[in-house]
């Protein structure tokens, strides 16, 4: 287990390091000088030069890279070029919108997919199965931003149950904040639920053919009790992998959904930062998102190995 852990951790650190190099290098070639953009077209050359020195832009690329990495390790992400505030605080503020949104979507999609997938597998080749699979087939084809637009039309424009967009802020109380996140969360969750329901169904179908299921049935355990006690638990392993991947997808998916609902989250931040050449924000945010993806997948692997000892030895 220890060897497995060390090897996985090594891979994680290597991936992150390469990712930081890639992100840094890519943004190096981005046209547009942040200092001249901040000061506008009428700025004097010496003012620009002074600001470049102040921001550390005149240092060699390697020094800036190392400074950036070193800072991130201690939670110092630098100062945003446009907002003139620490990047860490800026990201933390926006994460308070995006993270709860992604988590809500994940919960929703799991809550929809697990029962539907189970239903489809236990009613294999009968109408509930066909219905769920039909729903899944359509669900993966629906762009989440379009579904979001339709939800806004139905629940905000026509029925007026919830606000059409914007974020009330956590200061306005959790109820108001959650109310502004519920539609985007549903919009994000639907396509994910469709994928997850399929995975759950096929995983459960595999498990239902196992010998231990026949044994449980043979000893007289009722079908539903067998499914619940023996089958569902074992089927959850592949489901867990997809969930890990989906969390990453949901975090990224918030980028577009936040535009549909005018939410001040990480997605809006990265768009504004790109538009304003606020390199330090783009760099740090991208690496943070990559880190989130890699760490979530690492945790999923770990959870696997903890549950299933067979995976420790053969694990890549």
């Amino acid at each position: 287990m220890l060897v497995f852990l060390i090897r996985r951790l090594g891979g994680l650190v290597a991936t992150l390091l390469v990712a930081t190099v890639v992100v840094f290098a890519v943004l190096e070639i981005l046209p547009g000088d942040p200092a001249s953009l901040m000061l506008g077209v009428n700025a004097q050359p010496d003012t620009i030069a002074a600001l470049r020195t102040e921001l550390g832009l005149d240092r060699p690329a390697l020094a800036r890279y190392l400074g950036w990495i070193g800072g991130m390790l201690v939670g110092d992400f630098g100062i945003s070029y446009t907002y003139r505030v620490p990047v860490a605080g800026l990201i933390a503020d926006r994460a308070l919108v995006s993270l709860p949104l992604a988590l809500m979507a994940l919960l929703l999609s799991t809550a929809i997919a697990i029962p539907l997938g189970t239903l489809a597998a236990t009613a294999h080749n009968r109408w509930p199965d066909a219905t769920v699979m039909g729903f899944a087939q359509v669900g993966v084809a629906v762009p989440n931003f379009w579904f979001g637009i339709l939800l806004v039309y139905l629940f905000a424009v026509t029925l007026r149950w919830v606000p059409a967009g914007g974020f009330a802020g956590w200061d306005a109380g959790p109820a108001a904040a959650l109310a502004s996140l519920i539609l985007p969360a549903i919009a994000l969750a639907l396509p994910q639920a469709a994928i997850l329901a399929r995975v759950m169904r096929s995983a459960l179908l595999d498990v239902l053919h196992e010998d231990y299921i026949r044994t449980a049935r043979a000893k007289g355990l009722p079908f539903l009790a067998t499914v619940w006690r023996h089958a569902v638990r074992n089927a959850l392993i592949p489901v867990l992998t997809i969930l890990g991947l989906q969390f990453a997808f949901l975090i990224a998916g918030t980028i577009i959904i936040e535009n549909v609902f005018y939410l001040p989250g990480l997605g809006r931040l990265i768009f504004q930062a790109v538009a304003q050449r606020d390199l330090i924000v783009v760099q740090s945010l991208t690496v943070l998102l990559v880190a989130t993806v890699v760490i979530v997948n690492f945790l999923v692997d770990l959870a696997y190995a903890a549950v299933d000892p067979r995976l420790r030895d053969t694990g890549r």
Partner: peptide, 11 residues
């Protein structure tokens, strides 16, 4: 795969 596709597309 570690890069969320959309983030990279935006970049």
């Amino acid at each position: 795969f570690a890069f969320p596709a959309l983030v990279t597309a935006v970049m």
